[in-house]
Design a protein around this nucleic acid. Structure first.
Lengths: 142, 142
DNA sequence: TTGCTCACTTGTTTTTTGCAAGTAAGAAGA
DNA sequence: TCTTCTTACTTGCAAAAAACAAGTGAGCAA
């Protein structure tokens, strides 16, 4: 599993210890902004994560308490992955990456009006995302 | 140099293409929040970046336009690294990592009151950091 | 001219990632 | 019951990146 050892007492460094890689926050994005819940949905994302890296990151996220998995009762070979409250706490960070990425290159794909909402109505917007998540009704924002 | 190829049209993924590693944003932190300007100052940070990785990341950041380097006139073996406006645009992202890291583990070291300022007075606070930077008077926040 | 400082580069080992293939458990059809 | 899928992984190997140690060359300083 990816190392998450503490390199220093700086909280920025600590955040990067945990999420300083190209894949972990994409899994959070997939759950929060695309409503993905199953292994094969994560595998099929546009970026093309490798199956062993996905397996590794899901384990790390579960071990650290950012998500939980349980058996999917409708089809018992499947597992459902959902964010814990700790995992939901990552949404602001991912939203800022969305804003930054769009400002860096505004030819990238985003839903209309979303940048303005994140900037001007941030707290309500986050609350809406969380509600949608809990109702299994996440919107696709990118 | 670290790969920064575009994996998809998603702006979150694009941000991670550029900054999804354990070191690049620490250099931005060092400049913005610690006032570091010289190669050996970055090298001496608590996290212990390797000299080849530092060299690589500085090159990438300069190539992509997030910072510029020029000869230090007082001592010509030295180079001064400073953020461009593009680089300054990364400060909000790094601030959110500070907040997230501290909430994840509030035994980590931060200046008193800083979390509240980031959350309640974000725009002014960012403006202050930028002003301090331009006056070569950056504060150490972590 | 000798010995520093400084910003790197080079070479080697270790770790992590990427890719292809395989596996085991459960479902679904004959 | 037997075979064949699907699903969530694991395994093995090659390639890339990071870590570590040791240079190098340009500019000062005595």
């Amino acid at each position: 599993m990816k190392k998450t050892q503490k390199r220093s007492e700086c909280p920025i460094s600590r955040t990067l210890d945990l999420f300083g890689d190209k894949w972990t926050l994409l899994i959070i994005r997939d759950i929060a902004f695309k409503g993905h819940r199953f292994y094969n949905e994560f595998l099929d994302s546009d970026e093309g994560i490798a199956t062993n890296v996905l397996s590794d990151r899901l384990k790390m996220l579960e071990t650290k308490g950012f998500l939980v998995s349980k058996k999917y009762e409708q089809l018992k070979t499947k597992k459902v992955y959902t964010l814990t409250d700790e995992g939901i706490g990552l949404i602001p960070l991912v939203l800022d990456m969305l804003v930054w990425g769009y400002k860096f290159d505004n030819s990238l794909a985003v839903q209309p009006g979303i940048i303005e909402r994140i900037e001007n109505d941030r707290d309500n917007f986050i609350a809406e995302i969380v509600t949608a998540l809990k109702n299994y009704d996440a919107k696709n924002f990118c």
